[in-house]
Amino acid sequence: MDWTTIISTTVKAAIGVETVWYALAAIGINIHFGYTGLLNFGQSAFLAVAGYGLAVTVTVIGLPFWIGIVVGLAAAVLLALLLGIPTLRLRADYLAIVTIAAAEIVRLIFRSVAFKDVFGGSDGRRGFSDGFYALNPYPDGTYGFGWFTFNERVLWVLTIGWILVGLSCAVVYLLMKSPWGRVLKAIREDEDAVRSLGKNVFSYKMQSLILGGVIGSLGGFIYGLAYASVQPDIFGTETTFFAYTIVILGGAARVFGPVVGSMIFWVLLVLVNGVLSGAVQSGFITFMDITQVGPFRFLLVGLGLILLLVYRPQGIFGDKREIAIDAR
């Protein structure tokens, strides 16, 4: 077993591209679900419209990179409005149904044959990230020490990615300390009480949906730029559910919950994958082959999460007193 490789990939995963874009998606979910109580099961659609907004603007229409970013953000806001207007007046479960369906519609449109010349079908789009890497201040080369190294492209993506994560956390921190955040948390507890105190609940839920969607959409940009491509199936429902897992793992309604949750989630996945693959290759494990390791690690991670929910339902940063109130 090659422990150096296993450990180096695991340590890199803690701050890697996956961790970044899932953290952004999860920060969005944390605003929706953790603070406002909105069950948005369509977070992947926000990432998708942002990624594709950028990709299509640059490759198909031929406009510059910055306009692509603006188009992607606008698409996320528009999607939030489209999802929210019909559903936010209804009970919470309707939003869940509509968002999960909408996310699938978005994904299927992006991979449809009819729109292949725009969205590129199941191959997706590539070749839109030059504008981003043109801004790269790091000269060519590898950075880091020992085995902990990144090339200049990855380092640039990670720099921007972690700046975005930091900014998002700062925004969430400021907002949730403010009276605005207090209204959101109150809506999570009881909408009617908030209404009876003269707050426009619909407007606050819409603002929450837009904010969480836009922060999530940053994750779509980071994915697209890091891999210099977008494919429709990356933005499937499992992306949304991973984001939920991350939020619950880190502790819902906690500023750093999604970030730490995302780090732990990816470290675990990469570590289990590395150890299992190594064990299979060197013949320690004989009851499965190397292709079965991928699915099996999710099984183990799922088991771990069940144990977490049983023994620490509030997540890493959560407050046990809050869970105790629910149990009443």
């Binding site: 207090r182 109150a186 809050e322």
Partner: peptide, 17 residues
């Protein structure tokens, strides 16, 4: 309709217009 996971003081502050 007490807002359970808000403190008593936060409940009160919410009422201000």
């Amino acid at each position: 309709k007490a807002l359970s996971k808000l403190t008593v003081l936060e409940n009160m502050r919410l009422g201000a217009q």
